[in-house]
């Protein structure tokens, strides 16, 4: 059995290494690469057209529905992981329990489907 603290020390170190590698690559590139900015280069690339206004504006909000549904199903997932590990010992009780849970969420999915919220235009 691997030691708990040591395991997560590994995880910690790997995160640090990931960040370090990106930093190192950028630094090397910054040292080696030339930098000759011109006004044309520094303009946002919009297929050669002169950009009109900023990109940070208002966008249609129905894109938000997908993020919303994802959050709900993600929360379902955090219950599924522990359930999958012990469902054999729970037996039929566990099946019914999770069945009711999923069925209630599927009602929401069906509602979204009927409201035509699941199509991306």
């Amino acid at each position: 059995m691997p030691d708990y603290n040591l395991s997560y020390f590994y995880v910690f170190v790997f995160f640090a290494v990931g960040a370090f590698v990106v930093g190192a690559l950028m630094t090397v590139s910054r040292i080696i690469a030339p930098r000759r900015p011109t006004p044309e280069k520094l303009r946002p690339y919009e297929s050669g057209e002169e950009p009109i206004g900023q990109a940070w504006g208002r966008y249609p909000i129905h894109f938000y529905v997908f993020a919303l549904l994802f959050v709900v199903f993600d929360v379902e997932v955090i219950f599924l992981f522990p359930w999958a590990v012990i469902f054999a010992s729970l037996g039929w009780y566990g099946i019914v329990e999770m069945g009711v849970f999923i069925a209630i969420l599927v009602v929401g999915l069906v509602y979204a489907w009927k409201k035509d919220a699941l199509s991306w235009y």
Binding site: M26, V28, S29, R30, A33, R35, R36, Q54
Partner: peptide, 19 residues
């Protein structure tokens, strides 16, 4: 080539997040 290439960043970017 990629490492030695110019790294262009447009004027209007949100610098910290871009990096």
């Amino acid at each position: 080539k990629l490492i030695g290439k110019e790294d262009v960043r447009s004027r209007f970017t949100d610098a910290a997040f871009f990096l």
